[in-house]
Design a protein around this nucleic acid. Structure first.
Lengths: 186, 205
DNA sequence: AATTTACTTTAAAAAGC
DNA sequence: GCTTTAAAAAGTAAATT
């Protein structure tokens, strides 16, 4: 039997950092090919890296949000590319800016179909949100680890809200245990 | 001191007026939907509870009123879909849905997922289908839902497909378009659910 | 009727309205 | 609250072909 934990795949990592330097986004938008900047819509400038594929939101304060990367290493790599690009534009960037992971989105497969109606009642209507008229997934807010899990009828799940790589492992372990305890897994 | 008095009275009056407005809106929408008085009363209770729990801040009175009515219909076992509710409300479907989820969670309503069978009598009568068709549709829903086929699917689309299938089986055929119109779903959805259901039922056709 | 595109839900940060 | 970014899950919907 394959372990559900082995099916975990990180799909997206969101992280924040800062270069410790104020920026002139109007000028940066001119100098950075491919940069999107619409201050009327949103205060941040959008810059996308190709390899690794990620998107960065760069703000006037010098703070940066990186999203879309498939791993924490990719986040560091993508931001490293952006730091170098900025330095290339004579913009002073701190030596090693602190990079904080804010959210990790993962997917996994429990390997069995799930009866979401039974699960909603079993897990407790208090902690569950299941409104198939609005969205096909059952939303379960877990306390430890503190993450939100979306469970689907296929047994596929999405874990989000965690900041550590092993939060997804812990969440899968916990949800499998709970579902098995209810006798609702396969 | 007199100012404070006037302010209190003004505030009280405003609150009173808002409550009256909310209750009249619930009444107006309930009439348009043709739901019994008991449902309006349940909706009013839910709205007052939301008011007491201060859940209306940052939300429109219309939105909470509509969400309360949506919740009341479900609680009373005669659900209206968000689509039907939004047809009589000036709040859009998305806002009604998110407001409903919010008050449902905060008030601990513990609402169970809608059983598609709850839509069978109303949809069927609108289509002029017999009691026999309704029983068959209910049988299809019950049997296939037990097999786990309902997970994640919209209750209205599920009910619509079962009614369509039952109308065929009982020789009272309605077209997918006719059923789709009363259930407010697309023919594509009916087709998809119908295929799954007849396969799960092990039906010939 | 099949494809394609797009929207629904979850989390989180950023600056500002 | 909202705005923008990215990504997965599966259902529903609308526009094309």
């Amino acid at each position: 039997m394959t372990n559900p934990a082995d099916s975990i795949e990180i799909q997206n990592v969101v992280a924040s950092t800062g270069i410790g330097q104020e920026l002139d986004l109007e000028a940066l938008a001119e100098d950075l090919p491919g940069a999107d900047f619409n201050p009327d819509n949103f205060p941040g400038l959008v810059y996308r890296t190709q390899e690794p594929k990620a998107a960065a939101l760069i703000f006037r304060s010098g703070k940066i949000v990186c999203t879309g990367a498939k791993s924490i290493d990719d986040v560091h790599e993508a931001l490293g590319i952006i730091f170098e690009k900025l330095r290339g534009l004579q913009i002073p960037v701190e030596e090693d800016p602190d990079i904080t992971v804010q959210n990790i989105v993962s997917s996994a497969d429990l390997g069995h179909n799930l009866n979401l109606n039974a699960l909603a009642i079993g897990l407790g209507l208090e902690d569950v949100e299941y409104e198939p008229e609005q969205f096909p997934g059952l939303v379960y807010r877990m306390d430890e680890p503190e993450v939100v899990i979306l469970l689907f009828g296929s047994g596929k799940i999405v874990i989000t809200g965690g900041k550590r790589t092993d939060d997804a492992e812990g969440a899968v372990e916990e949800i499998v245990e709970r579902i098995e305890g209810l006798g609702l897994l396969g | 001191r007199l100012r404070k008095w006037q302010e209190r009275i003004r505030t009280k009056d405003a609150g009173e007026r808002n409550l009256q407005f909310a209750l009249s809106e619930i009444d107006r929408m309930a009439s348009a939907l043709g739901v019994p008085r008991s449902v309006r009363e349940v909706a009013s209770v839910i709205y007052r509870r939301a008011l007491n729990e201060d859940l209306i801040r940052g939300r429109s009175i219309e939105g909470v009123s509509t969400a309360a009515l949506y919740a009341a219909c479900r609680k009373e076992g005669i659900p209206r879909s968000l689509e039907e509710i939004s047809d009589v409300s000036r709040v859009d479907r998305k806002e009604i849905g998110r407001t409903y989820r919010y008050i449902s969670q905060e008030l601990g309503l513990e609402m169970r997922p809608v059983d598609p069978q709850k839509y069978v009598p109303r949809f069927s009568s609108e289509l002029g289908l017999s009691e026999e068709v309704q029983s068959k549709a209910n049988e299809i829903i019950e049997t296939t839902a037990e097999q786990g086929l309902l997970s994640g699917k919209s209750p209205t689309g599920y009910a619509a497909a079962a009614i369509y299938a039952a109308s065929l089986l009982c020789n009272e055929k309605k077209t997918q378009r006719e059923v789709a119109d009363v259930a407010q779903v697309t023919e594509v959805t009916i087709r998809n659910r119908y295929q799954e259901q007849i396969e799960a039922m092990g039906i010939h056709a």
